[in-house]
């Protein structure tokens, strides 16, 4: 998989997204090339400016000669299964840059702010030679924190006027940011938002990294370079004392569990007896707990026969 062959990268991503069989060999090969890219998760409420800010930051890295991959996730309709993926609108200048690869993804029913295959898409871009990967989540509320499992650095994009200091004290999303950007800093209330967030952050004594808070305005193009520097500082921090390795091990553990779950789930559900047991459960001739034991037993004997 080469960076200079975007069509092949794009097609592998689609295969992975659709869960089409037969791409495992490619992923296996690719895996050994991964781990080079710095993965920056960009999250925050809808309309905070995640895409616009990603665009600006991506330009900053491209200007430094880096290859940048961008994964932009938008929600899928729970009714039709369709989606409008509109993050590219803010990134049009980057579209034809050979050092940038942008991919939009629908969540396809997955909760947590990402699509279930976002981790794999990240690996594909990483393996294809990206230096920096941005993963932009859907607009989040208070508890979509999955990005923390996919990223080395989580950038939380906030805007003024989202509520008082109690909002910033709540558990969940506010706890996962490594760097905070207060976007739309040209609007009134930005100073207040910064103070509220900083106050909240100083009350996390168990953490050895105090998240940085940077005011930015995409509209007025201010604070972008400082924000990129803050992200770099977090990266340097991760590079000390094996912190990156520890964080990635935790994330790899989660990814492995997801892959295992996915594979086991597919094998168990597509197994011949699944529907039969289901019928028996409906007829009350079998209980679901014994059915699960039977399914696992079936899988074991199937493996022995292989």
């Amino acid at each position: 998989m080469k960076w200079t062959e975007p069509r092949q990268i794009a097609r592998l991503i689609s295969a992975v997204e659709d869960g089409r069989p037969g791409h495992e060999e490619q992923l296996k090969e690719l895996f050994y090339q991964t781990g080079q890219a710095h993965v920056i998760g960009v999250t925050g409420p809808p309309g905070a400016g995640k895409s616009s800010l990603t665009d600006k930051l991506a330009k900053y890295y491209v200007d430094q000669g880096k290859r940048v991959g961008i994964i932009a996730v938008d929600p899928t309709s729970p009714f039709s299964g369709g989606s409008i993926l509109g993050d590219r609108i803010r990134m049009n200048d980057l579209t034809t840059n050979p050092n940038v690869f942008i991919r939009s993804m629908g969540t396809r029913g997955h909760l947590g702010g990402l699509a279930s295959s976002t981790h794999l898409v990240k690996q594909i871009l990483d393996g294809a030679g990206a230096d920096i990967i941005f993963i932009e989540t859907v607009g989040v509320g208070q508890s979509e924190v999955e990005i923390v499992q996919a990223a080395d650095t989580v950038l939380m994009v906030m805007v003024p006027g989202l509520g008082d200091d109690i909002q910033s004290m709540k558990a969940g999303i506010m706890e996962i940011g490594d760097v905070f950007a207060i976007n739309k800093a040209d609007l009134p209330g930005a100073d207040r938002a910064k103070i509220d967030i900083q106050n909240m952050l100083t009350f996390q004594p168990e953490k050895d990294w105090l998240p940085l808070v940077q005011m930015v305005s995409v509209k007025e193009n201010t604070g972008i370079e400082e924000l990129a520097k803050a992200i770099e500082m977090h990266r340097s921090f991760l590079n000390e004392e094996d912190r990156l390795a520890i964080r990635r091990k935790r994330n790899t553990r989660n990814e492995l569990i997801d892959l295992l779950y996915d594979k086991l789930y597919r094998r168990l559900v597509t197994q011949g007896n699944f529907e039969r047991y289901l019928e028996q459960i409906v007829e009350k001739t079998l209980d679901p707990y014994s059915a699960i034991d039977k399914l696992l037993e079936d899988l074991r004997s199937e493996n022995e026969n292989d």
Partner: peptide, 9 residues
């Protein structure tokens, strides 16, 4: 979108 497709705009 309403026909179940992913639309990139």
């Amino acid at each position: 979108r309403d026909a179940g497709m992913e639309v990139i705009y």
